[in-house]
Design a protein around this nucleic acid. Sequence first.
RNA 1: GCUGCUGUAGCUCAGUGGUAGAGCGCGUCCUUGGUAAGGACGAGGUCCUGGGUUCAAAUCCCAGCAGCAGCUCCA
Length: 737
Amino acid sequence: MLQVQLPDGSVKEYPDNYTAIDVAKTIGERLANATLAAEVNGNVVDAMRPLEQVSNLPAGTPIPLKLITNKDPRALGVMRHSAAHIMARAVMRLYPGVGLAFGPTTGHGFYYDFDLDTKISEDDFPRIEEEMKKIIVDAEPFERIQSTRDEAIKLCGDLNQKLKVEHIQTGLADHSSLSFYRQGNFLDLCRGPHVPDAGRVTAIKLISIAGSYWKGDANNKQLQRLYGTAWFSQKDLDEYIQQVDEAKKRDHRVLGKQLGLFTISQEVGPGLVLWLPKGATIRATLEEFIKKELLKLGYTPVYSPHIGRVEMYETSGHFPYYRDAQFSPIFGHDAGALVDFWIRKLREHKEGTAVFSLDDENKLLESAKVMGAALTEYPKTGSVDAKIETLRVWEKNQERYLLKPMNCPHHVQMYASQQRSYRDLPVKLAEFGTVYRHEKTGELNGLLRVRGLTQDDAHMFCTPDQVEEEFKATLNLVKFVLGSVGLDDYRVQLSLRDSKNKSKYVGTDENWDKAEATLRKVLTEMGWAFTTMEGEAAFYGPKTDFMVRDCIGREWQLGTVQLDFNLPERFKLEYIGADNKPHRPVMIHRAPFGSMERFTGVLIEHFAGAFPLWLAPEQVRVLPISEKAYDYAASVERRFREAGFRVTTDFTSNRVNAKVRDAQLALIPYMLVVGEKEAAADTVTVRDRLEADKQLNLSVAEAIAKLQEEAAARRVRQVAKSNFRSFDSAGEEENEY
RNA sequence: GCUGCUGUAGCUCAGUGGUAGAGCGCGUCCUUGGUAAGGACGAGGUCCUGGGUUCAAAUCCCAGCAGCAGCUCCA
């Protein structure tokens, strides 16, 4: 007999081969029908497998069991995973030769990656959905099959599933036993769990098709990823679709256009933001705000140019590490680009990654001559190294500039411009530094991913003793800055080096270990919740990143605080210590907003365009009732402007109803309605955008005082909550198998 | 960069192998009104760019550019 402990604590006995469903049946048929999975000893498992098998407890121990019905959010994940199998089965029925890759669930649904020559398009969705519905109607059970590695490889090989075979041999190399799930004649390598049968999957919809790479590596084969979503009822599904539509309305690109905040012109170039007056006002207000905070914290403002010599970025490492993502260097000599290309070819030739023939070499020599670079020293018969060296010498005598991709090297030069004593440290150099990066076309996204961006950047040069304290103070600054705009749904991430691929980073293991340990210590001491991500560090050091989500749930990095032992080393920075000897400072790179572009973009979505009074580009609009009140309206506008407000007056010939509507839709925090009554008493009727029914008749002076108080306090009275945003990645599965 | 989709008026979008459409916005006039749209008239378009097919292309095909979604990347 089997002993089972139910959630109420009671222990009951059942026959040995009983499943969770069987147990449910003893309680009631309806419960059994609603049971989709089971929680056994804390793990979510199949409800249709014998409890003995799914519990890893010693025989004779009572098995703790909780039935998971469709009321339990975890059931949604299990069901979506089953839906992914059903979709894969449907696709295999419709298309011959489908290779299966991964098919996990996501926070909003599921996807499956297919290796398939025929291109699936959205027009095919109805067919696939039809096929899925047939499978659901047939309601065949999901059945788990356990196998050894060798059996699994043979089974996948027999099914001609090459990717699965490869995955078992590589990614699952340490699994001695593997599980499959069979659903009718469809068999897939899968760790489960699944719902008892296909009929339990109720409301499904295919969402989109897109490319993906096998195992997430762009060098690998490109697959077709089919996204879908599944819910327990058509009503839930409809609600979800509606939420997505709602969420899209607050997209910063949509609102940015609607509210006239910014524009991106093809003529100027993709990813290059044109801040229109209203957007620029928001940005300027944010900049002013943080400038004041920085002064309080002992930062000093600096300015640096938009370009710098390539050699400097070679020293820092930015140029070699990110060349692909940078705008091409600016060469002072016509032959500069040619010699640059030449050196790269020679290097590739040396590494054996490209062929560089004698003929090519002669052509380049000729071309260089035509361009005015004689290169008489070029050792045509010399070694590759000698050739590279000769070209490098020539290159270094020319001017080569880089559009700056980062501010750090400039600030480093400022630090190095004078001798520093330990008494001077920390030195905190702050600048709204505009940098340029040639992001790949597919990555650009409104204000969130651009090619020209302004960081609210600063670099702190500390003694090793100061690092922890300064790091903590900076983290608190970021928290304060985010809090002042009501942003509280962010995630703190400790971004570490990829321990398996250290070639992506500069510096010694010792420095890295020290830096990573410091960050971990600081975060732990502060008592903040944080997640750790390997491989997310900057090439020069680990960092603490503040991650937020956009209107459709994508995560973006905003603020960042980074610890760096390496650039001071590479630039040989020093300060004179109390021992009268030179020491190496430590750098902290930090940007609380991250970039003004991305921060503003996130902020637009955060407020759904309805900015609090202190940030609103148009804070107040005066609405004269009729022409008779025009003169008075003008005087009210003038007095508000003189009091420091961004104010306009609606002099259109519309009726006041229309003026109110326009102002309301323009998301202006306060309207001041003025007519003959107000003019006679020198008052205004204040209409609050958020509380239109609570209107106040105040004297102009009172109204100014009231609004000044609200703006000065930087009060955030409303943050546009999004249902959609509450979805998180908690329901997502790893691509384990 | 890769895969797929999209590109028509200032905006949102309909549309057809045969002379270009709506709503909103904009302009003018009438209306001078008390809290989410007063009325009339009017202007406005290289239908993304370049090729091709065709008697005829904004429509079909190809290439490019740009945007969107996903992947990859992100100092």
